[in-house]
Design a protein around this nucleic acid. Structure first.
Length: 577
RNA sequence: GCGCGAGUAGCUCAACUGGAUAGAGCGUCGGCCUCCGGAGCCGAAGGUUGUGGGUUCGACCCCCGCCUCGCGUACCA
């Protein structure tokens, strides 16, 4: 009867009872969820109302009938029909104590690995070669990494792939700049800055000098035709850029299983175009090859070009080739693309073409899009001079600001320790600020808010963790005895904390299902709040047994869930701060 | 024009398949230091969820109209 998640046990039994009453009813919708108000109970099921409605039954009568077939007596002290047909479950304290005791014994941490693991490709970050990573890359990188971590934690096979922008028309201009205007000293000290400068210089020149533009085109054509010198220079640009990416990803703790950039798919593009034309999915129009969507209302007026009039493929084609490659290579059940919301139309087109091209596929395709990061003025987040903010500078500033706070609050710590704390706190704050808002809304960037020690911030959660850890440092016996198998949960604050711990897995599943890490942020913040209530009202070290053992176990489990939850957000914890 | 998205407390944001009295932080006001980390805690005030209809036992959420803002809308990605 044991399980990391009590609600799941209740749910299974409820489904059995519903099936007895309504044998034909779909059981997936029958779910048990936490009550919004503790006064109603701990968990509720409201699916019966919908089932009754669809069958023109009296919802309360159905609920009462189901209740007769439902036996959860060892888990719940009461099950009631409430209001128009809610089913409210109130857990037995002993059942909570047992479940939490199992976790304290190391059996689980309130979540379960999926019974049906999927293979999921997560495509995120995707910076461009020869350009600095900037603030525009942070949300994709942080969100994608977090989703990959959560999916992995739940037992899915996750493949992360960084789809670099390493091909395209910009390389014609870059090659012109590299060959004629390069400053070797600058390239040695700041290769990305120098490449950026070269691109801007040539790009500006092209705008007023057709000869320059033509020269860039020639270099691009040579590159595309496999010119040895241009290929070598292009590879060097990629290598220099990759070093920058590695540095940033190293600081962020982000890693990729694969880095297959756009150029990897070049050899596959002609076959994709040919296949689409042969299947009648694309046809000539105004000199280009274009896919039309007459039967899809959303896309009726938005055809997609798959081959430009100059014969070159564009990003729709590259993405189709990428999609096909991933399907053939990894046989995923699901591919998740983490990009900003402006690409919604592109992904609608991409998915629509792919569905027509491979109608037999059961692949789940998800465009996980996010809003913009804005400055205090409500405009896109830029430097005071109006320039794009480099990601490296942003990370530096996060650490600098955190160091100032740490040095002010803990001046006695050695500098090396303060710097390490500042690194963890600063980066954690930055990531958390990105993960906390609903990803689909724009959010306003604010250093002071993200680094605050109160409110829903990473430093607050890290602080909560460190505070718990300090309790264990105060133990006279550094290796306390085993936690009790069943916790005593006499105080209301203990019970509330324990019940909240029980819902960790539910939240992780919601994050994975809807691709929304903010659920996890809010869960952890609530957990810290429940812990505070417990901590203020329930002495731990001075409590007599058996309360002391139970409370120590609650502390250890809260710390464990905080650490695990923050780790899933890509955020580190500290023993002291 | 069309499409997508947003509009929730003074500000920044939440709100878990439609579910019960829409919640936090900041700011404001008022409390709590003999106590395991005060980098803290407790409390109060603050709302016609842009607007007008509709569906429903029940709507921030679904449908229709309107207003405001952002983004996108065939050869950049």
């Amino acid at each position: 009867m044991t399980s990391p998640m009590l609600h799941r046990l209740i749910e299974e039994r409820l489904r059995t009872a519903v099936a007895a009453q309504l044998p034909e009813a779909p059981l997936a919708s029958v779910q048990v969820r936490p009550c919004p108000e503790p006064k109603f109970g701990d968990y509720q099921a409201n699916a019966l109302m919908a089932l009754a409605k669809a069958r023109q039954m009296n919802p309360r009568r159905l609920a009462e009938a189901v209740l007769k077939d439902l036996d959860v007596t060892e888990l719940c002290e009461s099950v009631e029909v409430a209001g128009p047909g809610f089913l409210n479950f109130r857990l037995r304290t002993a059942a909570v104590g047992r479940a939490v005791g199992e976790a304290a014994g190391g059996a689980h941490l309130f979540y379960a690995r999926s019974a049906a693991p999927r293979t999921v490709v997560v495509d995120f970050s995707s910076p461009n070669v020869a350009k600095p990573m900037h603030v525009g890359h942070i949300r994709s990188t942080i969100l994608g990494d977090c989703l990959a971590r959560v999916l992995r934690c739940l037992g899915h096979r996750v493949i992360t792939d960084n789809h670099l922008g390493d091909w395209g028309t910009q390389f014609g201009k870059l090659l012109v700049g590299w060959k004629h205007h390069q400053d070797p000293a600058a390239l040695a000290t700041d290769p990305i800055g120098e490449m950026e400068r070269l691109y801007k210089q040539v790009n500006t020149a092209c705008e007023r000098d057709p000869a320059m533009l033509e020269q860039a085109r020639q270099e691009l054509v040579k590159l595309q035709q496999g010119d040895a010198q241009n290929l070598a220079l292009w590879r060097e640009m990629i290598a220099l850029s990759q070093r920058q990416f590695d540095t940033i990803y190293g600081r962020l703790g982000v890693r990729f299983d694969h880095t297959l950039g756009e150029s990897f798919y070049n050899p596959r593009l002609p076959a994709v175009v040919q296949a689409l034309v042969e299947r009648g999915l694309a046809r000539p129009s105004e000199g280009a090859l274009v896919a039309f969507f007459e039967t899809l209302p959303d896309l009726k007026d938005h055809p997609a070009i798959i081959q430009k009039s100059d014969g070159a493929a564009n990003y729709t084609t590259t993405d189709l080739a990428t999609l096909a490659y991933r399907q053939e290579t990894w046989q995923p059940d699901e591919i998740v693309y983490v990009t900003d919301g402006r690409q919604q139309l592109h992904f609608k087109q991409l998915f629509a073409i792919f569905r027509q091209w491979r109608p037999e596929t059961r692949l789940r395709l998800a465009h996980v899009w996010f809003g913009a990061i804005l400055g205090e003025d409500g405009r896109p987040f830029k430097t005071r001079a109006g320039d794009t903010i480099r990601l490296a500078d942003l990370l530096d500033e996060a650490e600098d600001r955190a160091l100032r706070v740490v040095s002010e609050k803990s001046p006695d710590l050695p500098e090396a320790e303060r710097r390490e704390i500042a690194r963890v706190v600063g980066l954690g704050a930055l990531k958390y600020a990105d993960l906390l808002p609903n990803r689909q809304s724009d959010y306003v960037f604010n250093w002071d808010k993200m680094l605050a020690l109160n409110g829903n911030t990473a430093p607050y959660l890290q602080y909560a963790y460190a505070r718990i850890r300090s309790i264990f440092r105060k133990l006279p016996d550094p290796a306390p005895g085993a936690a009790p198998a069943t916790l005593e949960l006499a105080a209301p604050e203990e019970l509330r904390l324990a019940k909240h711990l029980l819902t960790f897995g539910l939240v992780l599943e919601a994050v994975a299902e809807e691709y929304r890490p903010n659920y996890l942020c809010n869960y952890l913040y609530e957990l810290a709040g429940h812990f505070t209530g417990f901590y203020e009202n329930c002495p731990v070290l001075k409590a007599p047994e058996p309360a002391r053992g139970s409370r120590l176990a609650l502390c250890a489990l809260t710390a464990g869930v905080l650490r695990q939850g923050l780790d899933l957000l890509g955020i580190q914890t500290l023993e002291k701060m």
